[in-house]
């Protein structure tokens, strides 16, 4: 575990990651999303997995994702989340923002180090 311990992830970042996950994998339930983020971040980023649900609610309210009841891989009833067209647009915008900001932040940080 690194310094980026539990839930230090910025709110907006988690939203962005969930959007990206749903964009990449299609409909997923909460557990699957948590696993995917865990896997992609190579365990660097360890979440309080509950915060995924807060994030999902936020995204639902914005209309960027939608939810639907379905049957999970272990044959149990689960709620599946999928990205909406509006969510796709938002993802594009946010991704661009993120890249711009992170590059700026990166540059600033490098500047400090020099």
């Amino acid at each position: 575990m690194t310094d980026l311990k539990k839930s230090e992830v910025l709110q907006g970042t988690l939203d962005l990651m969930i959007l990206k996950t749903l964009h990449a994998l299609g409909p997923q339930h909460g557990f699957g999303i948590a696993r995917r983020i865990e896997q992609v971040s190579r365990d660097v980023l360890s979440l309080n997995e509950g915060t995924v649900y807060t994030s999902l609610l936020r995204l639902l309210q914005q209309g960027w994702i939608k939810s639907q009841w379905g049957i999970s891989d272990n044959n149990r009833k689960a709620k599946f989340y999928s990205i909406t067209a509006r969510g796709e647009r938002q993802l594009a915008v946010e991704t661009e923002n993120w890249e711009r900001i992170s590059s700026v932040v990166g540059r600033v940080l490098r500047l400090e180090e020099e």
Binding site: K6, S46, N48, G50, T51, T54, L57
Partner: peptide, 17 residues
């Protein structure tokens, strides 16, 4: 532990919702 505080989560949810 890994999931986090359910109570806080529910509270969050209620506030957002």
């Amino acid at each position: 532990r890994q999931f986090g505080n359910i109570g806080v989560l529910k509270q969050d949810r209620r506030e957002v919702r």
